[in-house]
Design a protein around this nucleic acid. Structure first.
Lengths: 246, 246
DNA sequence: CTTGACTCTCACGTTACGTTATCGTTTATC
DNA sequence: GATAAACGATAACGTAACGTGAGAGTCAAG
Protein backbone atom coordinates (compact mmCIF):
# COMPACT_ATOMS: atom_id res chain seq x y z
CA UNK A 1 0.00 0.00 0.00
CA UNK A 2 1.26 3.42 -0.99
CA UNK A 3 0.30 6.91 0.11
CA UNK A 4 -0.35 9.76 -2.28
CA UNK A 5 3.14 11.10 -1.87
CA UNK A 6 4.78 7.78 -2.62
CA UNK A 7 2.73 7.33 -5.76
CA UNK A 8 3.42 10.89 -6.81
CA UNK A 9 7.16 10.41 -6.47
CA UNK A 10 7.16 7.07 -8.24
CA UNK A 11 5.17 8.24 -11.22
CA UNK A 12 6.32 11.83 -11.40
CA UNK A 13 2.89 13.36 -11.02
CA UNK A 14 1.62 15.86 -8.46
CA UNK A 15 -0.51 14.98 -5.47
CA UNK A 16 -3.13 17.33 -6.83
CA UNK A 17 -3.25 15.19 -9.95
CA UNK A 18 -4.01 12.10 -7.87
CA UNK A 19 -6.75 14.01 -6.04
CA UNK A 20 -8.16 15.09 -9.36
CA UNK A 21 -8.05 11.60 -10.85
CA UNK A 22 -9.93 10.37 -7.82
CA UNK A 23 -12.46 13.17 -8.16
CA UNK A 24 -13.28 12.29 -11.76
CA UNK A 25 -13.21 8.57 -10.92
CA UNK A 26 -10.36 7.92 -13.29
CA UNK A 27 -8.12 6.39 -10.64
CA UNK A 28 -9.79 5.67 -7.31
CA UNK A 29 -7.61 4.70 -4.35
CA UNK A 30 -7.74 1.01 -3.47
CA UNK A 31 -8.90 1.76 0.07
CA UNK A 32 -9.52 4.83 2.16
CA UNK A 33 -8.42 4.82 5.79
CA UNK A 34 -10.59 5.89 8.69
CA UNK A 35 -8.64 9.14 8.69
CA UNK A 36 -9.73 9.74 5.12
CA UNK A 37 -6.27 9.05 3.67
CA UNK A 38 -5.97 7.50 0.22
CA UNK A 39 -4.07 4.23 -0.13
CA UNK A 40 -3.09 2.59 -3.44
CA UNK A 41 -1.92 -0.93 -4.28
CA UNK A 42 0.13 -2.34 -7.16
CA UNK A 43 -2.86 -2.76 -9.45
CA UNK A 44 -3.49 0.96 -9.11
CA UNK A 45 0.15 1.50 -10.05
CA UNK A 46 -0.35 -0.26 -13.36
CA UNK A 47 -3.56 1.55 -14.03
CA UNK A 48 -1.74 4.81 -13.47
CA UNK A 49 0.95 3.71 -15.89
CA UNK A 50 -1.71 3.15 -18.54
CA UNK A 51 -3.24 6.52 -17.81
CA UNK A 52 0.11 8.22 -18.28
CA UNK A 53 0.68 6.43 -21.58
CA UNK A 54 -2.63 7.53 -22.97
CA UNK A 55 -2.13 11.03 -21.62
CA UNK A 56 1.27 11.19 -23.29
CA UNK A 57 -0.45 10.29 -26.53
CA UNK A 58 -2.79 13.25 -26.17
CA UNK A 59 -6.06 11.56 -25.23
CA UNK A 60 -8.50 13.33 -22.96
CA UNK A 61 -8.97 11.91 -19.50
CA UNK A 62 -12.61 11.07 -20.16
CA UNK A 63 -11.63 8.97 -23.13
CA UNK A 64 -8.91 7.27 -21.12
CA UNK A 65 -11.44 6.34 -18.49
CA UNK A 66 -13.71 4.95 -21.20
CA UNK A 67 -10.92 2.83 -22.58
CA UNK A 68 -9.64 1.51 -19.27
CA UNK A 69 -13.12 0.72 -17.97
CA UNK A 70 -14.06 -1.15 -21.12
CA UNK A 71 -14.30 -4.85 -20.17
CA UNK A 72 -12.64 -5.74 -23.44
CA UNK A 73 -9.57 -3.73 -22.54
CA UNK A 74 -6.44 -5.83 -22.76
CA UNK A 75 -3.28 -4.57 -21.21
CA UNK A 76 -0.79 -6.18 -23.56
CA UNK A 77 -2.67 -5.21 -26.70
CA UNK A 78 -2.86 -1.67 -25.39
CA UNK A 79 0.85 -1.59 -24.67
CA UNK A 80 1.65 -2.81 -28.16
CA UNK A 81 -0.58 -0.10 -29.53
CA UNK A 82 1.26 2.51 -27.45
CA UNK A 83 4.49 1.23 -28.93
CA UNK A 84 3.31 1.92 -32.43
CA UNK A 85 2.01 5.38 -31.66
CA UNK A 86 5.18 6.34 -29.83
CA UNK A 87 7.24 5.11 -32.74
CA UNK A 88 5.18 7.41 -34.90
CA UNK A 89 5.97 10.25 -32.53
CA UNK A 90 9.65 9.56 -32.84
CA UNK A 91 9.38 9.67 -36.60
CA UNK A 92 7.59 12.96 -36.37
CA UNK A 93 10.30 14.44 -34.16
CA UNK A 94 12.90 13.23 -36.61
CA UNK A 95 10.98 15.03 -39.33
CA UNK A 96 11.21 18.15 -37.19
CA UNK A 97 14.97 17.70 -36.99
CA UNK A 98 15.30 17.52 -40.75
CA UNK A 99 13.10 20.60 -40.95
CA UNK A 100 15.54 22.35 -38.63
CA UNK A 101 18.56 21.32 -40.65
CA UNK A 102 16.85 22.35 -43.84
CA UNK A 103 15.84 25.71 -42.37
CA UNK A 104 19.38 26.40 -41.24
CA UNK A 105 20.73 25.69 -44.68
CA UNK A 106 18.00 27.78 -46.19
CA UNK A 107 18.87 30.76 -44.00
CA UNK A 108 22.51 30.40 -44.88
CA UNK A 109 21.42 30.54 -48.50
CA UNK A 110 22.70 27.07 -49.26
CA UNK A 111 19.37 25.59 -50.18
CA UNK A 112 15.95 26.74 -51.32
CA UNK A 113 12.90 25.81 -49.26
CA UNK A 114 9.20 25.72 -49.97
CA UNK A 115 6.56 27.17 -47.69
CA UNK A 116 5.25 23.73 -46.93
CA UNK A 117 8.68 22.51 -45.97
CA UNK A 118 8.98 25.25 -43.38
CA UNK A 119 6.29 23.46 -41.43
CA UNK A 120 7.36 19.89 -42.14
CA UNK A 121 6.48 17.81 -39.12
CA UNK A 122 3.99 20.31 -37.74
CA UNK A 123 1.08 20.14 -40.12
CA UNK A 124 1.08 16.39 -40.51
CA UNK A 125 -0.64 15.56 -37.30
CA UNK A 126 -4.08 16.94 -38.11
CA UNK A 127 -5.64 14.11 -39.99
CA UNK A 128 -3.73 11.52 -38.05
CA UNK A 129 -5.63 11.96 -34.78
CA UNK A 130 -8.78 10.83 -36.44
CA UNK A 131 -6.99 7.86 -37.90
CA UNK A 132 -5.12 7.08 -34.71
CA UNK A 133 -8.22 6.50 -32.67
CA UNK A 134 -9.85 4.45 -35.34
CA UNK A 135 -6.68 2.46 -35.80
CA UNK A 136 -6.55 1.63 -32.12
CA UNK A 137 -10.09 0.36 -32.10
CA UNK A 138 -10.27 -1.77 -35.16
CA UNK A 139 -6.90 -2.17 -36.55
CA UNK A 140 -4.59 -0.45 -38.90
CA UNK A 141 -4.93 -2.72 -41.85
CA UNK A 142 -8.66 -2.37 -42.02
CA UNK A 143 -8.39 1.38 -41.94
CA UNK A 144 -5.90 1.31 -44.76
CA UNK A 145 -8.16 -0.82 -46.91
CA UNK A 146 -11.06 1.47 -46.15
CA UNK A 147 -9.13 4.54 -47.18
CA UNK A 148 -8.05 2.86 -50.39
CA UNK A 149 -11.60 1.85 -51.23
CA UNK A 150 -12.87 5.36 -50.55
CA UNK A 151 -10.20 6.88 -52.77
CA UNK A 152 -11.20 4.60 -55.61
CA UNK A 153 -14.54 6.38 -56.00
CA UNK A 154 -15.14 9.32 -58.31
CA UNK A 155 -15.91 12.70 -56.79
CA UNK A 156 -19.48 12.36 -57.95
CA UNK A 157 -19.86 8.99 -56.32
CA UNK A 158 -18.32 10.33 -53.13
CA UNK A 159 -20.85 13.14 -52.99
CA UNK A 160 -23.69 10.71 -53.54
CA UNK A 161 -22.47 8.41 -50.77
CA UNK A 162 -22.13 11.31 -48.40
CA UNK A 163 -25.65 12.46 -49.16
CA UNK A 164 -26.97 8.99 -48.54
CA UNK A 165 -25.17 8.90 -45.20
CA UNK A 166 -26.59 12.23 -44.13
CA UNK A 167 -30.08 11.09 -45.00
CA UNK A 168 -29.69 7.97 -42.90
CA UNK A 169 -28.58 9.90 -39.84
CA UNK A 170 -31.40 12.41 -40.25
CA UNK A 171 -33.87 9.52 -40.43
CA UNK A 172 -32.35 8.11 -37.26
CA UNK A 173 -32.91 11.38 -35.46
CA UNK A 174 -36.52 11.30 -36.61
CA UNK A 175 -36.80 7.76 -35.26
CA UNK A 176 -35.44 8.63 -31.83
CA UNK A 177 -38.83 9.12 -30.13
CA UNK A 178 -39.65 5.47 -30.84
CA UNK A 179 -36.65 4.29 -28.86
CA UNK A 180 -33.44 2.50 -29.91
CA UNK A 181 -35.03 -0.93 -30.24
CA UNK A 182 -38.09 0.12 -32.24
CA UNK A 183 -38.72 -1.60 -35.55
CA UNK A 184 -38.35 1.72 -37.34
CA UNK A 185 -34.96 2.44 -35.84
CA UNK A 186 -33.71 -1.05 -36.54
CA UNK A 187 -34.89 -0.83 -40.14
CA UNK A 188 -32.89 2.33 -40.65
CA UNK A 189 -29.88 0.66 -39.09
CA UNK A 190 -30.17 -2.05 -41.73
CA UNK A 191 -29.80 0.69 -44.36
CA UNK A 192 -26.87 2.09 -42.38
CA UNK A 193 -25.29 -1.37 -42.31
CA UNK A 194 -25.65 -1.65 -46.06
CA UNK A 195 -24.31 1.88 -46.52
CA UNK A 196 -21.09 0.98 -44.72
CA UNK A 197 -20.19 -1.44 -47.50
CA UNK A 198 -19.01 1.58 -49.45
CA UNK A 199 -16.14 1.73 -46.97
CA UNK A 200 -15.43 -1.80 -45.82
CA UNK A 201 -17.00 -5.17 -45.12
CA UNK A 202 -18.94 -4.45 -41.92
CA UNK A 203 -18.33 -7.38 -39.64
CA UNK A 204 -20.38 -7.67 -36.42
CA UNK A 205 -17.47 -6.74 -34.18
CA UNK A 206 -16.85 -3.69 -36.30
CA UNK A 207 -20.45 -2.60 -36.05
CA UNK A 208 -20.30 -2.87 -32.30
CA UNK A 209 -17.01 -0.99 -32.24
CA UNK A 210 -18.51 1.75 -34.35
CA UNK A 211 -21.41 2.10 -31.95
CA UNK A 212 -19.01 2.66 -29.09
CA UNK A 213 -16.83 4.93 -31.15
CA UNK A 214 -19.77 7.12 -32.07
CA UNK A 215 -20.48 7.70 -28.42
CA UNK A 216 -17.03 7.69 -26.87
CA UNK A 217 -14.85 9.51 -29.35
CA UNK A 218 -15.33 13.24 -28.91
CA UNK A 219 -14.81 13.86 -32.61
CA UNK A 220 -17.51 11.49 -33.74
CA UNK A 221 -19.77 12.36 -30.84
CA UNK A 222 -19.51 16.06 -31.63
CA UNK A 223 -20.66 15.46 -35.19
CA UNK A 224 -23.68 13.48 -34.11
CA UNK A 225 -24.52 15.86 -31.30
CA UNK A 226 -24.84 18.55 -33.90
CA UNK A 227 -27.80 16.62 -35.30
CA UNK A 228 -29.31 15.91 -31.89
CA UNK A 229 -27.73 16.18 -28.43
CA UNK A 230 -28.80 12.67 -27.45
CA UNK A 231 -27.97 11.00 -30.73
CA UNK A 232 -24.60 9.49 -29.70
CA UNK A 233 -25.88 7.40 -26.74
CA UNK A 234 -29.01 6.57 -28.74
CA UNK A 235 -26.82 5.28 -31.55
CA UNK A 236 -24.69 3.19 -29.25
CA UNK A 237 -27.75 1.55 -27.70
CA UNK A 238 -29.48 1.04 -31.02
CA UNK A 239 -26.43 -0.44 -32.73
CA UNK A 240 -25.76 -2.71 -29.79
CA UNK A 241 -29.31 -4.07 -30.07
CA UNK A 242 -28.98 -4.37 -33.82
CA UNK A 243 -25.83 -6.48 -33.43
CA UNK A 244 -27.54 -8.70 -30.88
CA UNK A 245 -30.24 -9.61 -33.39
CA UNK A 246 -27.87 -10.50 -36.22
CA UNK B 1 0.84 37.88 -48.62
CA UNK B 2 -1.22 35.16 -47.11
CA UNK B 3 -4.69 35.15 -45.52
CA UNK B 4 -5.45 33.49 -42.21
CA UNK B 5 -6.75 30.38 -43.88
CA UNK B 6 -3.68 29.95 -46.04
CA UNK B 7 -1.40 30.30 -43.04
CA UNK B 8 -3.55 27.94 -41.04
CA UNK B 9 -3.38 25.28 -43.73
CA UNK B 10 0.34 25.69 -44.24
CA UNK B 11 1.26 25.46 -40.59
CA UNK B 12 -1.46 23.13 -39.39
CA UNK B 13 -2.91 25.49 -36.82
CA UNK B 14 -6.46 26.81 -36.48
CA UNK B 15 -7.61 30.25 -37.53
CA UNK B 16 -8.64 30.86 -33.96
CA UNK B 17 -5.03 30.26 -32.95
CA UNK B 18 -3.87 32.98 -35.34
CA UNK B 19 -6.49 35.33 -33.93
CA UNK B 20 -5.32 34.53 -30.44
CA UNK B 21 -1.65 35.00 -31.29
CA UNK B 22 -2.54 38.38 -32.69
CA UNK B 23 -4.55 39.23 -29.59
CA UNK B 24 -1.65 38.52 -27.25
CA UNK B 25 0.76 40.23 -29.65
CA UNK B 26 2.75 37.07 -30.17
CA UNK B 27 2.32 37.09 -33.93
CA UNK B 28 0.87 40.24 -35.42
CA UNK B 29 -0.16 40.24 -39.08
CA UNK B 30 2.18 42.12 -41.36
CA UNK B 31 -0.60 44.41 -42.53
CA UNK B 32 -4.30 44.76 -41.95
CA UNK B 33 -6.51 45.57 -44.92
CA UNK B 34 -9.18 48.25 -44.94
CA UNK B 35 -11.71 45.48 -44.54
CA UNK B 36 -10.00 44.45 -41.30
CA UNK B 37 -8.54 41.26 -42.79
CA UNK B 38 -5.19 39.99 -41.55
CA UNK B 39 -2.40 39.52 -44.07
CA UNK B 40 0.92 37.82 -43.36
CA UNK B 41 4.22 37.78 -45.28
CA UNK B 42 7.10 35.32 -45.35
CA UNK B 43 8.83 36.78 -42.32
CA UNK B 44 5.69 36.07 -40.34
CA UNK B 45 5.85 32.52 -41.66
CA UNK B 46 9.28 32.03 -40.12
CA UNK B 47 8.23 33.60 -36.87
CA UNK B 48 5.32 31.21 -36.73
CA UNK B 49 7.70 28.33 -37.33
CA UNK B 50 9.75 29.43 -34.33
CA UNK B 51 6.62 29.74 -32.22
CA UNK B 52 5.60 26.21 -33.11
CA UNK B 53 9.03 24.85 -32.24
CA UNK B 54 9.00 26.44 -28.84
CA UNK B 55 5.41 25.40 -28.27
CA UNK B 56 6.32 21.83 -29.18
CA UNK B 57 9.00 21.98 -26.52
CA UNK B 58 6.43 22.96 -23.92
CA UNK B 59 7.19 26.65 -23.42
CA UNK B 60 4.40 29.03 -22.51
CA UNK B 61 3.38 31.56 -25.12
CA UNK B 62 4.41 34.46 -22.93
CA UNK B 63 7.92 33.06 -22.64
CA UNK B 64 8.04 32.45 -26.37
CA UNK B 65 7.14 36.07 -26.99
CA UNK B 66 9.88 37.13 -24.60
CA UNK B 67 12.44 35.02 -26.43
CA UNK B 68 11.46 36.06 -29.93
CA UNK B 69 11.26 39.74 -29.04
CA UNK B 70 14.67 39.71 -27.40
CA UNK B 71 17.01 41.73 -29.61
CA UNK B 72 19.75 39.17 -28.96
CA UNK B 73 17.63 36.41 -30.42
CA UNK B 74 19.42 34.60 -33.19
CA UNK B 75 17.53 32.32 -35.46
CA UNK B 76 20.24 29.81 -36.20
CA UNK B 77 21.37 29.48 -32.61
CA UNK B 78 17.75 28.92 -31.62
CA UNK B 79 17.28 26.27 -34.26
CA UNK B 80 20.38 24.45 -33.08
CA UNK B 81 19.05 24.57 -29.56
CA UNK B 82 15.74 23.12 -30.73
CA UNK B 83 17.68 20.31 -32.33
CA UNK B 84 19.27 19.32 -29.06
CA UNK B 85 16.05 19.48 -27.06
CA UNK B 86 14.17 17.46 -29.65
CA UNK B 87 16.92 14.86 -29.59
CA UNK B 88 16.36 14.66 -25.85
CA UNK B 89 12.68 14.18 -26.50
CA UNK B 90 13.42 11.31 -28.82
CA UNK B 91 15.57 9.69 -26.15
CA UNK B 92 12.75 10.02 -23.68
CA UNK B 93 10.28 8.39 -26.06
CA UNK B 94 12.73 5.58 -26.62
CA UNK B 95 12.87 5.12 -22.86
CA UNK B 96 9.11 4.83 -22.93
CA UNK B 97 9.37 2.13 -25.55
CA UNK B 98 11.76 0.09 -23.44
CA UNK B 99 9.39 0.60 -20.52
CA UNK B 100 6.63 -0.84 -22.66
CA UNK B 101 8.69 -3.84 -23.71
CA UNK B 102 9.73 -4.44 -20.14
CA UNK B 103 6.17 -4.16 -18.89
CA UNK B 104 4.95 -6.66 -21.46
CA UNK B 105 7.62 -9.15 -20.44
CA UNK B 106 6.81 -8.50 -16.81
CA UNK B 107 3.13 -9.24 -17.35
CA UNK B 108 3.98 -12.43 -19.18
CA UNK B 109 6.04 -13.37 -16.14
CA UNK B 110 9.27 -13.46 -18.09
CA UNK B 111 10.97 -10.72 -16.16
CA UNK B 112 10.70 -8.98 -12.77
CA UNK B 113 10.20 -5.23 -12.67
CA UNK B 114 10.68 -2.62 -10.01
CA UNK B 115 8.13 0.02 -9.18
CA UNK B 116 10.41 2.71 -10.46
CA UNK B 117 10.84 0.94 -13.76
CA UNK B 118 7.10 0.94 -14.30
CA UNK B 119 7.35 4.67 -14.72
CA UNK B 120 10.63 4.80 -16.63
CA UNK B 121 10.48 7.74 -18.99
CA UNK B 122 7.63 9.45 -17.19
CA UNK B 123 9.25 10.71 -14.03
CA UNK B 124 12.31 12.05 -15.79
CA UNK B 125 10.84 15.43 -16.40
CA UNK B 126 10.96 16.08 -12.69
CA UNK B 127 14.69 15.82 -12.64
CA UNK B 128 14.88 18.67 -15.07
CA UNK B 129 12.91 20.82 -12.70
CA UNK B 130 15.32 20.00 -9.92
CA UNK B 131 18.09 21.30 -12.09
CA UNK B 132 16.11 24.37 -12.91
CA UNK B 133 15.57 25.02 -9.23
CA UNK B 134 19.24 24.54 -8.59
CA UNK B 135 19.99 26.94 -11.39
CA UNK B 136 17.73 29.48 -9.79
CA UNK B 137 19.26 28.92 -6.38
CA UNK B 138 22.84 29.30 -7.43
CA UNK B 139 21.75 31.06 -10.21
CA UNK B 140 21.04 34.21 -11.80
CA UNK B 141 23.44 36.49 -10.09
CA UNK B 142 26.33 34.15 -10.53
CA UNK B 143 25.46 33.68 -14.14
CA UNK B 144 25.47 37.41 -14.62
CA UNK B 145 28.83 37.79 -12.93
CA UNK B 146 30.17 34.97 -15.02
CA UNK B 147 28.98 36.60 -18.19
CA UNK B 148 30.54 39.89 -17.14
CA UNK B 149 33.84 38.22 -16.38
CA UNK B 150 33.79 36.45 -19.73
CA UNK B 151 33.06 39.66 -21.56
CA UNK B 152 36.03 41.34 -19.90
CA UNK B 153 38.45 39.14 -21.85
CA UNK B 154 39.92 40.06 -25.19
CA UNK B 155 38.94 38.05 -28.23
CA UNK B 156 42.36 36.46 -28.25
CA UNK B 157 42.09 35.42 -24.64
CA UNK B 158 38.62 34.04 -25.28
CA UNK B 159 39.90 31.87 -28.08
CA UNK B 160 42.73 30.59 -25.92
CA UNK B 161 40.36 29.70 -23.08
CA UNK B 162 38.04 27.92 -25.44
CA UNK B 163 40.92 25.90 -26.85
CA UNK B 164 42.04 24.95 -23.37
CA UNK B 165 38.53 23.79 -22.55
CA UNK B 166 38.27 21.68 -25.65
CA UNK B 167 41.63 20.07 -24.89
CA UNK B 168 40.46 19.15 -21.38
CA UNK B 169 37.31 17.45 -22.61
CA UNK B 170 39.21 15.57 -25.29
CA UNK B 171 41.68 14.37 -22.66
CA UNK B 172 38.75 13.23 -20.55
CA UNK B 173 37.41 11.16 -23.42
CA UNK B 174 40.85 9.60 -23.77
CA UNK B 175 40.82 8.80 -20.05
CA UNK B 176 37.42 7.09 -20.14
CA UNK B 177 38.76 3.51 -20.45
CA UNK B 178 40.50 3.90 -17.09
CA UNK B 179 37.19 4.61 -15.37
CA UNK B 180 35.82 7.71 -13.65
CA UNK B 181 37.85 7.27 -10.46
CA UNK B 182 41.23 6.60 -12.07
CA UNK B 183 44.16 8.83 -11.10
CA UNK B 184 44.42 10.00 -14.70
CA UNK B 185 40.79 11.08 -14.88
CA UNK B 186 40.97 12.83 -11.54
CA UNK B 187 44.13 14.69 -12.55
CA UNK B 188 42.40 16.03 -15.64
CA UNK B 189 39.48 17.09 -13.49
CA UNK B 190 41.91 19.17 -11.41
CA UNK B 191 42.82 21.01 -14.61
CA UNK B 192 39.12 21.36 -15.40
CA UNK B 193 38.56 22.78 -11.92
CA UNK B 194 41.31 25.31 -12.46
CA UNK B 195 39.97 26.12 -15.93
CA UNK B 196 36.57 27.08 -14.51
CA UNK B 197 38.18 30.01 -12.68
CA UNK B 198 38.05 31.87 -15.97
CA UNK B 199 34.31 31.97 -15.49
CA UNK B 200 33.63 32.00 -11.77
CA UNK B 201 34.91 30.84 -8.40
CA UNK B 202 34.20 27.10 -8.49
CA UNK B 203 32.78 26.22 -5.12
CA UNK B 204 32.32 22.50 -4.26
CA UNK B 205 28.54 22.67 -4.48
CA UNK B 206 28.83 24.25 -7.88
CA UNK B 207 31.14 21.53 -9.12
CA UNK B 208 28.69 18.87 -8.02
CA UNK B 209 25.84 20.77 -9.63
CA UNK B 210 27.80 21.01 -12.86
CA UNK B 211 28.38 17.25 -12.88
CA UNK B 212 24.66 16.63 -12.65
CA UNK B 213 23.89 19.34 -15.14
CA UNK B 214 26.28 17.85 -17.69
CA UNK B 215 24.41 14.57 -17.58
CA UNK B 216 20.87 15.67 -16.92
CA UNK B 217 20.44 18.74 -19.04
CA UNK B 218 19.75 17.62 -22.58
CA UNK B 219 21.46 20.68 -23.98
CA UNK B 220 24.73 20.10 -22.18
CA UNK B 221 24.51 16.36 -22.61
CA UNK B 222 24.04 16.70 -26.34
CA UNK B 223 27.26 18.65 -26.61
CA UNK B 224 29.25 16.09 -24.67
CA UNK B 225 27.64 13.20 -26.47
CA UNK B 226 29.06 14.63 -29.64
CA UNK B 227 32.51 13.89 -28.23
CA UNK B 228 31.57 10.45 -26.95
CA UNK B 229 28.11 8.93 -26.41
CA UNK B 230 28.90 7.86 -22.85
CA UNK B 231 30.72 11.01 -21.82
CA UNK B 232 27.83 12.65 -19.90
CA UNK B 233 27.28 9.84 -17.35
CA UNK B 234 31.04 9.34 -17.12
CA UNK B 235 31.47 13.02 -16.29
CA UNK B 236 28.81 12.95 -13.63
CA UNK B 237 30.40 9.96 -11.90
CA UNK B 238 33.92 11.33 -12.18
CA UNK B 239 33.01 14.79 -10.91
CA UNK B 240 31.06 13.32 -8.04
CA UNK B 241 34.12 11.34 -6.99
CA UNK B 242 36.37 14.36 -7.45
CA UNK B 243 34.18 16.41 -5.10
CA UNK B 244 34.22 13.65 -2.50
CA UNK B 245 38.01 13.82 -2.34
CA UNK B 246 38.20 17.57 -1.93
C1' DC C 1 -27.15 39.76 -57.87
C1' DT C 2 -27.10 36.08 -55.28
C1' DT C 3 -24.70 32.37 -53.30
C1' DG C 4 -21.12 30.27 -50.91
C1' DA C 5 -16.75 30.60 -49.00
C1' DC C 6 -14.09 33.72 -46.02
C1' DT C 7 -13.44 37.07 -42.70
C1' DC C 8 -14.20 39.87 -38.50
C1' DT C 9 -15.24 40.75 -33.40
C1' DC C 10 -17.25 39.66 -29.09
C1' DA C 11 -17.90 36.49 -25.41
C1' DC C 12 -18.60 32.52 -22.89
C1' DG C 13 -17.01 27.43 -22.22
C1' DT C 14 -13.48 23.89 -21.46
C1' DT C 15 -9.62 20.84 -19.82
C1' DA C 16 -6.39 19.52 -16.37
C1' DC C 17 -4.70 20.73 -13.26
C1' DG C 18 -1.80 24.89 -9.96
C1' DT C 19 -2.34 27.43 -6.05
C1' DT C 20 -3.42 29.15 -1.78
C1' DA C 21 -6.13 28.64 2.54
C1' DT C 22 -7.68 26.21 6.40
C1' DC C 23 -7.74 22.31 8.96
C1' DG C 24 -7.05 17.36 10.92
C1' DT C 25 -3.25 13.42 11.47
C1' DT C 26 1.01 11.07 12.00
C1' DT C 27 5.68 10.80 13.22
C1' DA C 28 10.06 12.17 15.02
C1' DT C 29 12.34 14.47 18.66
C1' DC C 30 13.09 16.46 22.89
C1' DG D 1 3.95 13.28 26.76
C1' DA D 2 4.32 17.65 24.46
C1' DT D 3 5.45 19.85 20.35
C1' DA D 4 6.99 20.78 15.92
C1' DA D 5 7.56 19.08 11.27
C1' DA D 6 5.83 16.52 7.74
C1' DC D 7 1.94 14.73 5.66
C1' DG D 8 -2.96 14.26 4.59
C1' DA D 9 -7.78 16.21 3.51
C1' DT D 10 -11.35 19.30 1.46
C1' DA D 11 -12.80 23.55 -0.71
C1' DA D 12 -12.66 26.99 -3.88
C1' DC D 13 -10.79 30.08 -6.94
C1' DG D 14 -7.31 30.83 -10.82
C1' DT D 15 -5.00 29.77 -15.44
C1' DA D 16 -3.48 28.85 -20.23
C1' DA D 17 -4.59 28.21 -24.78
C1' DC D 18 -7.51 27.93 -27.28
C1' DG D 19 -12.76 25.75 -28.98
C1' DT D 20 -17.11 27.07 -30.14
C1' DG D 21 -21.00 29.50 -31.56
C1' DA D 22 -23.43 34.05 -32.62
C1' DG D 23 -24.03 37.78 -35.52
C1' DA D 24 -22.48 40.44 -39.23
C1' DG D 25 -19.56 42.24 -42.90
C1' DT D 26 -16.64 40.95 -47.47
C1' DC D 27 -15.16 38.83 -51.68
C1' DA D 28 -15.11 35.85 -56.02
C1' DA D 29 -17.72 33.30 -59.22
C1' DG D 30 -21.45 32.27 -61.97
Amino acid sequence: MYTVKQIANLAGVSIRTLHYYDEITLLAPTTIGENGYRYYDDAALFRLQQILFYRELGLELRQIRGILDNPEFELIVALQSHRRVISGRINRLQTLITTIDRTIKHIKGEEPMSNKQIFGGFNEEQEKRYTEEAAQLYGEERVRKSVNLWNSYTAEKKAQIKAEGSAIYLDLVAAMPGGPTSAETQAILARWHQHLRYFYEPHVEILRGLGQLYNQSPEFAANFEALHPDLPPFLEAAISHYCDTL
